[in-house]
Structures are given as structure tokens and as C-alpha cells.
Amino acid sequence: MMAVLRVFLFGIFAIFIGLLFMGIGRKVIARIQLRYGPPFYQAFLDVGKLFARKSITHNFVMDLGMVMALGGLLATMLFVPIAGHVAVKTSTNLIVIMYLMAIGYLGMAMAVAASGNPNATIGVSRALTMMLGYEVPFFTVILGLIIVNGTSSLELISQSQAGSILNWNMIKFPLAFIAAEIALQAMMGEKPFDAMIAPAEIASGPMVELSGKYLGLAFLTHAVSIFVETAIIVNLFMGGASNIFTFVLKQFEIYLITIFIEAVFPRFKIEQAVKFLWTVPIGIAVLQLLLILL
């Protein structure tokens, strides 16, 4: 019973923080664009409004896919240590985390492909291509860290950086951090790697057929993905944290970097994006790997 409650609490926490980040991110972007911007709690209002609306479904696969997307990411969240706490006290294996994360995106792909809109289908095929693009450099980075620490447990990697700031992997392996940051930009689907949602090209792609509660679920999925992805980077490179407040603050720093890049970059075409991801971040990550090995 306690375990179920714990899992539930972790899920709510991830959604809350993710939506808060989304709202603050919108405000930050607005200020960069010399606008006033919506209030920082706008994302909560949006989700509340969307869940109060009537929604259109196309078929059963679409319903299932949306739930699978949110479920997949929430399941990933359970294996990510947050300031030393893990929802399910089994393992915090990085390979498992990366594998589970893909399930969320596959769920989204399933849902929007079932909607039958060509814009959505193009968007989803782009999203999956992009996944292929960013996972290779990210796995190269992870490989280096696993070799150094001799473990694939995210919790142990984060604990090994305890103590001073000089122990952080960010300082010890700056090249790996840069490569991971570029991959993270693509993972979050922020510019210049947002070819999958490109409103001017494919009318917002995957989101085009989602309405009401489905769009609300997509919002929540994005919120959890922000939480999970920033949490992984904080654990890998910034040494986790001793309390939850510091942890969220570190996550926010990482999110702020992606938002700043998002605000001033146009988007790559999908083939340009994958070409970039398979040359620049992989090059940096392999260089770091060689430095570690030699």
C-alpha cells in the first residue's frame, strides 16, 4: 500500500514540477521576445481547461497510445533517483531508463499515427528519426561515464560525485557534458531540433489531431519528459543533490539553458538535424571517450 502511494506521489511531483517549468519557460521566452508573457502558472490553467473539454477520438489505438505515452514516461520516472529518493527501490540502471523512455515516445507515435492525418504522420516519423539522431551521442556519453564509474546505476554515478563541486562530472568531463546538452536539446524537442512539431511546415505535427483531454495528456507527457530528462542530466553531471529543493533548482538551471537556446534559434530540417547530431555531439562524445580510455 505504501509503495503504491509512493509511486503515486512521485508521479504527481514530476507532473507538478514539469508544468511549473513549462510555465516559467514560456515567461522567460516571452521576456526574451520583449513580450510580457503569460503568468508562470499558465500551464496548469491550460491543462485544467483542456481536461474540462469535450474531446474527439479517432479509434481505440489513439486512446491507448496517449495513455501509453504518459505511462511510459511516468514509468521511466520511477527509476530515476531524485535527491537520493527512488520511487521503486530496485535498480536505477541507466540502460533500463533509456529503454523505458523510448516506450513513451512510441506510444505517442502510435496515437498520432492512428489519427490518420498526414501532418501528424510526417511529424511522428520525424520524431522517431530525431530519436535515432540523439540517442547515439547520448549513449556514447553514457558509455564513457559507465566505464569511469564501473557501474550503470544512475544512483551510484550520482553518489560518486558527492562532496565538492570539483567532483561533478560536468567539471571532470566537460566535453561529455556539452555533447549531452546538445543531445538533451533534441530530446526535449526544443529548437533547433523541433522539426517534429514545426508549426509553419506541418501544422504542429503530432498535435494537429489532438483535442481536449488528448491534448491535455500530451501536455502532461511533455511535462514529465522535461522532468525526467533534466533529472537524468542532473544525476549524471551535477552530482544529484542532498535535498529535493536543490535538486529541482539544478534541474531548472538545465532547463533554462535549453530555453535560452530555444529562443534564438531557427529549426534544422530533419535531415540536417540528424546529420548534425551524428557529427558534432558524437565527435565530442567520442573524443571524451578516448580521453577516458587512454
Binding site: I29, I32, Q33, L34, R35, K191, P192, D194, A198, A200, A263, V264, F265, P266, R267
Partner: peptide, 16 residues
């Protein structure tokens, strides 16, 4: 042109 390429920041500044 910026907005067509996903660059919204100059669009807002130019509109202002």
C-alpha cells in the same frame, strides 16, 4: 521569414 523557419523572437520584436 523567421517564423517560417521557427525563429519567433525577431518576429515579435519586429511586430513591436
Amino acid at each position: 521569414l523567421g517564423a517560417a523557419l521557427g525563429l519567433y523572437t525577431p518576429m515579435y520584436i519586429m511586430m513591436a
